[in-house]
């Protein structure tokens, strides 16, 4: 067998640290001052993967009832990251948790309802994690972009409001730009998939010995799933962020108006 599933031993992992050593040496030679970060990243990835490995062994070993808990923990962690990134938006953590939950539930829900993937932890956890981590980036991007744009263009926004437009109408063009910005990365990677890089799911299946044709089919589902997940996230985040940056009376909140001494 040429596949790698079950072939990688702990000794192999230790040997692969040679390549970490290479990056430390490069950093030192070029005075990139990243040695410490590289070591922290290596240690963290080791600890985090070890932990998730144990969790997955446990859940896949007849404890599938814990699947929702694993997904919730992922949503929780992603919420903390995304919420911190968008913290200039009031209620950023609530926006993040709503966005990520809708993205995960909506996308996995469609895949399960259509019978594309089985309702099994072995499918739900890895696919869910991909949806959540992608949606996390989209959520952070849409939130921070909207906040920055409405702050930078507050005169235009208020000119619209002054004519009697609603907050949704007054913010429409920046809302559109933020959603677009949030979805662009996944749209672009969907365009070049297979040409620039063989993406993770496909690579994983090939390494595990699957046939290329089944690997690409899975990868197609993954790409379409990520498009859907990011669209859910962009939609929910955009809508909720606009709701938080304006008052119920269609006023820009003071924190946005007072950017740069307005």
């Amino acid at each position: 067998m040429n596949d790698l599933s079950g072939r990688i031993s702990w000794a192999d992992v230790a040997l692969a640290l040679v390549l970490v050593g290479v990056s430390v040496v490069v950093s030192r030679m070029r005075k990139a001052d990243l040695e410490r970060d590289i070591l922290v990243a290596t240690f963290r990835s080791f600890a985090q993967l070890l932990a998730i490995g144990f969790v997955l062994e446990f859940v896949l070993d007849g404890n599938g009832a814990f699947t929702p808990l694993v997904l919730l923990a992922m949503i929780g962690t992603a919420t903390l990251t995304s919420g911190a990134r968008g913290r200039q938006v009031p209620g950023a953590y609530w926006i993040a948790v709503a966005s990520l939950s809708v993205a995960a539930a909506g996308t996995l829900g469609v895949l399960l309802l259509l019978g594309i993937v089985p309702a099994a932890p072995r499918a739900a956890i890895p696919l869910g994690s991909m949806i959540i981590s992608n949606a996390m980036n989209t959520t952070s991007l849409v939130m921070s972009r909207l906040r920055d744009d409405l702050g930078a263009h507050r005169r235009e926004v208020e000119a619209h409001l002054s004519l009697g437009e609603t907050a949704a109408e007054a913010s429409a063009s920046w809302h559109r730009a933020a959603v677009r910005n949030g979805m662009l990365a996944i749209v672009d990677s969907t365009k070049v998939v297979g040409l620039v890089a063989l993406p993770g799911a496909m690579t994983g299946m090939l390494l595990a010995g699957a046939s290329p044709s089944s690997a690409i089919r899975l990868q197609m589902v993954v790409m379409y799933m990520l498009l859907g997940g990011n669209a859910f996230a962009a939609l929910v985040t955009g809508k909720l962020t606009v709701g938080r940056l304006f008052t119920a009376d269609h006023q820009l909140i003071r924190a946005v108006r007072r950017v740069a001494g307005a």
Binding site: R155, S162, L163, H250
Partner: peptide, 15 residues
């Protein structure tokens, strides 16, 4: 929205 339509505000910088 009706109040703002009735009392139109024009800011310092033309937008």
């Amino acid at each position: 929205l009706d109040l703002r339509r009735r009392a139109q505000y024009v800011g310092q910088v033309a937008v």
